[in-house]
Design a protein around this nucleic acid. Sequence first.
DNA 1: GCCAGCATGTAAGGAGTTACATGATTAT
DNA 2: ATAATCATGTAACTCCTTACATGCTGGC
Lengths: 189, 189
Amino acid sequence: MAKKPLPSTAYAVLGLLMPTTPMSGYEIRKAAEQLRYFYWSPAQSQIYSELRRLEALHYVSSILVSQSGKPDKRMYKITSAGQAAFTTWINTAPLDPTVVKHPMKLRLFFGDYADLDQLSQQLQSFIDTSNETLAQLYIVREYREMDPSYQWPGLIAEWSETVLEAEVKYAKSLLIRIQNNDLDSFIEE
Amino acid sequence: MAKKPLPSTAYAVLGLLMPTTPMSGYEIRKAAEQLRYFYWSPAQSQIYSELRRLEALHYVSSILVSQSGKPDKRMYKITSAGQAAFTTWINTAPLDPTVVKHPMKLRLFFGDYADLDQLSQQLQSFIDTSNETLAQLYIVREYREMDPSYQWPGLIAEWSETVLEAEVKYAKSLLIRIQNNDLDSFIEE
DNA sequence: GCCAGCATGTAAGGAGTTACATGATTAT
DNA sequence: ATAATCATGTAACTCCTTACATGCTGGC
């Protein structure tokens, strides 16, 4: 019986520990936040439970560090079994399909039943938050230009930027079409 | 106490019933598959449980239809309370953030620990499946050119196409860069 | 003869979230 | 003062998936 594979989230956490520097759950949680641009960010409680599972599998080991005043801190470190497991995963695990949960598109899909003014407002706020995300991605990419260990993260930031820009561009043109009540203009092109 | 909002999935199912034509769980399930391009496709068992919840809320009603030989069939129909709830949702519910689970980007993020040949192969298969998805989207969009009730679905297909094309374009250029071992070329541009 | 499609439903469990609880330190 | 950051952990719950169970019809 082939043991069932761990969810990608477990490997994402394991991957963050690959540099072998011991990290606390709290630090890992913060590091995991940058995953949100392309792989959502797990909740704090899930980070802790993934760490416990990883430890049960001997992929990570932990030690308690006493701190004056503060509660004890548990520092996690990847084991050599963990490094091996991560390498096997990244090289050989089958690629799961990309999943997108795009609430704006879901609403537009049912646009027939919506108020066009409301839809316009929602599209506008979608564009605004996308632009904010873009601004954050620019920062990641600039980081990379200085720190060579940021090669790959910088690369995926660049990729996400390119795609998000296309997203915003389309959303803007759609917004104009909705406001002009001219939804089928693209047929005529 | 404000009753907590239903998950978007419930509204997605409700929305599919908005045309007031009664549908069986099976038909709804098939219809829900087209949501996968921008909102993943719920499992069959979840469709059925959402329908039961929607019925408990009186947003849909159902009748049993006997069929010779085959097991009974339950036909669902949206109620006026359901139509009102859907309209309120689409017009006023706050827009949840877009979530992307992109396994290819997750792997590239940890590219330092991967074999470049394996990564290339994975990128190639990512490009292949993306192209297959594109082909399916073209079909949806062509559908729309004939059926005016397909306006909005056609529009989001067009949007998804535009974005996926940008995705594939970037992936292809990245693949070439990886194969040439030339990852930081974009700095020099 | 077998598989795909039609058609529904349950059981078990995994994945993931929110909310709560605790408490020190540092910055505003 | 009070909010944010550091720091961990649990309980309760929802969402969602996989797997199983059943059985007919029509095509290859």
